[in-house]
Design a binder for these strands. Structure first.
Lengths: 260, 260
DNA sequence: GAGTGGTCTAGACCACTCG
DNA sequence: GAGTGGTCTAGACCACTCG
């Protein structure tokens, strides 16, 4: 870990396995988080940073590209770059796992299994998972809560190979993704589809909210590192209790608006 | 525009204003889209690409970083990089501008101004735009439609300096962002907050839908290239007609789940 | 014109994967 | 051990912004 001394001290080299550019990026992020640089402040110039960190310009630029990508800084050519604020990202694992997300908030995750059974894939499910119609799949239906408050209904479909790994797990208490991770299965990439739906009578009863309340629906396709489907899920969150935030960098975004 | 000849031809240089690394990235993207490289195929090695494009390794790496960032390719150190497929992104301009999005679908954008007036910023608005409470701001309230079907209610606040640029524009027909762009103002980065709300009676009347229908609400903070606030908007989409899709790459994501 | 960030090159060494 | 991508440096020139 290298700090940013006012004058160049012992030139840092890769003693640990952490790349220099990442050490620089982390140092700058820490300083933004600590208020050394405040939103609106200009970032020190490249030349300054080269001097302070005792690394080459390329390394500084690589570090800064990371800060740009996560939205910590902004700006354009010719002008000094501007600090925007603390980075605004979440690990995919935490995004996918309700359990680890709730824990990260310091709350107690809970759940109740409504149903869990093997069956045959219908047309939609088969298409979503990239399987032939009629393939064996597992359907899991749960209500998830934080500190006892129901927040989410999960309706998830797993391919047979994934579902069997969960067959003897207590899904009322355990995180599906932690259990899968122990068995070597992780969600490496995912596609999310967000829209709003009225709570059906079943939804309303499960969440303890009025009929027809607005729910934020998140449909997720999860894939492992090899691109094989791990899950297809229809998650319904209480719209009044949860939101999703998206940081859009310059240029192209990962967010797409679609007509249904 | 440079292609990728099997053998190095005339070494391309920056004749136009487009950076070389971007020309290379665009060329590779086109080849992925055209099926020259198919999902699962390995990408040619760095050495290959250096030869084919006649540029330095640094330029190739910069181009590949862009493909990585938009999800076109994946892979890790020591292995050949793997083509994942056509990128799944939307230019920020199209994401922000309802008008240009609707046009991209081949439909006719329309609109109706409900109100447009100058006023003083309350506490929330001031905080959102980073202005002192009581600062002059402009509030725009519109219904937006595609081929005559109302899809969206926009409630947008602009800082005084932006609002005055719009004072004499026909906002029933014109795109705010196109008009602003002509005056040198563009949204370079944005933060989006997505949740679900019940349609208020006013919402329902404006969209011509039943009271209490689920709406997908998108709150947006837009900033220019210098990080200055351009707009703060509360957009409400018909949940049954629209959704947002998010492509999550490996590792950290720009998508964050939050408790309200 | 001075200072800033953006582009590009050439070359070195390292870490990882694979046959 | 050969080949791959990852890191890092040093130096050149360019485009843009600002006083």
């Amino acid at each position: 870990m290298i700090a940013a001394p006012p004058v160049a001290a012992d030139p840092p080299r890769r003693t640990s396995g952490t790349p220099l550019h990442q050490q620089v990026a982390d140092a700058l992020r820490r300083q933004i988080a600590a208020g050394v640089f405040r939103p609106g402040d200009p970032l020190p110039s490249e030349y300054d940073l080269v001097q302070r960190f005792g690394v080459s310009r390329g390394t500084i630029r690589q570090a800064r590209a990371a800060l740009r990508a996560d939205g910590s800084i902004g700006g354009s050519q010719g002008r000094k770059l501007v600090v925007r604020g603390v980075p605004f990202t979440q690990p995919l694992g935490e995004l996918v796992s309700f359990t680890s997300w709730v824990r990260s908030l310091g709350k107690e995750p809970g759940g109740r299994v409504v149903s869990f059974a093997r069956g045959g894939a219908g047309e939609d499910t088969a298409a979503a998972l990239g399987l032939p119609v009629g393939s064996l799949i597992w359907r899991l239906n749960r209500v998830r809560s934080a500190d006892g408050e129901p927040l989410l209904i999960e309706r998830t479909v797993f391919p047979e190979a994934i579902g069997v790994l969960l067959a003897d797990v207590d899904l009322g208490q355990q995180s599906v993704y932690e259990q899968l991770a122990r068995r070597g299965v992780t969600v490496a990439t995912a596609r999310h589809l967000l829209d709003a739906v009225d709570a059906t009578p079943a939804d309303a009863r499960l969440l303890g909210i009025p009929n027809g309340s607005a729910l934020l629906r998140v449909q997720r396709h999860g894939f492992d590192a090899g691109g094989r489907p791990v899950e297809w899920s229809d998650d319904r969150y209480r719209g009044d209790r949860l939101n999703f935030a998206i940081e859009n960098r310059a240029g192209d975004t990962g967010l797409v608006r679609q007509l249904a």
